[in-house]
Amino acid sequence: MRTFSLLKGQSVFETTSGQKIGEVCDLSISGNGKVNGLLVKKGVFFKQSYFLDIEKVSSFGVDGVMIDDNGSLEKLKDQEYTLNHQHSLDGMMMLSKSGESLGLLKDVYFQEELGTIIGYEITDGFFSDLTEGKQVIQSGKPLAIGKDAIIVDVNNT
């Protein structure tokens, strides 16, 4: 389990050649809250983002993400949601199913091999983070992502 912020910027390597393919720049998240892939920036001067299906990753290491074949990268299509790019979830209001405001989404905790999000790091703002610290909301159940808010079934706060 790791947060996206730890994965962001990690190099993606091809295992057969040892060649660096690019760097992880974002997560692709389905409407039911499952990580279905990574967005990988590739290129030297004109970097482009590509989609890498989570199932095509052979391993998630401490210092790199390993794939078997450079052909696993696909042209970026219209993703459902991402943390930072198109249809961004970063900073969205999170509400519990009972209607309680939990804060704003800052990061996600997920199981890399399964693509399952198991926790959400939320913030109430910079000063609140300094005085109270960031909070992690755990939820094993799928969430609902709407235009205005993310609804989650809360286990622990």
Results as ranks from 00 to 15, higher is better:
residue 14 E to G: 06
residue 25 C to D: 05
residue 23 E to I: 10
residue 117 I to K: 05
residue 52 L to K: 11
residue 148 D to N: 14
residue 101 S to Q: 09
residue 5 S to T: 11
residue 150 I to L: 02
residue 62 V to S: 11
residue 35 V to H: 03
residue 48 Q to D: 02
residue 84 N to E: 11
residue 103 G to V: 09
residue 56 K to P: 01
residue 28 S to I: 11
residue 110 F to M: 03
residue 156 N to E: 14
residue 25 C to L: 00
residue 21 I to C: 02
residue 8 K to V: 09
residue 156 N to V: 12
residue 36 N to S: 12
residue 63 D to N: 14
residue 100 E to N: 10
residue 62 V to N: 08
residue 110 F to Q: 04
residue 91 G to V: 13
residue 120 Y to E: 07
residue 17 S to A: 12
residue 140 G to L: 14
residue 150 I to A: 03
residue 106 K to M: 05
residue 116 T to R: 14
residue 2 R to D: 02
residue 145 I to V: 15
residue 10 Q to E: 14
residue 14 E to T: 13
residue 88 S to L: 12
residue 41 K to N: 08
residue 52 L to Y: 13
residue 27 L to M: 04
residue 107 D to C: 07
residue 60 F to G: 09
residue 18 G to T: 04
residue 118 I to A: 12
residue 83 L to C: 05
residue 142 P to C: 05
residue 140 G to C: 07
residue 37 G to I: 06
residue 5 S to N: 10
residue 92 M to E: 07
residue 155 N to R: 04
residue 87 H to P: 00
residue 84 N to G: 10
residue 5 S to I: 03
residue 22 G to C: 07
residue 54 I to M: 10
residue 157 T to H: 12
residue 44 V to G: 03
residue 109 Y to I: 06
residue 13 F to G: 01
residue 70 N to K: 15
residue 66 M to E: 13
residue 8 K to R: 15
residue 106 K to D: 08
residue 53 D to L: 02
residue 43 G to D: 08
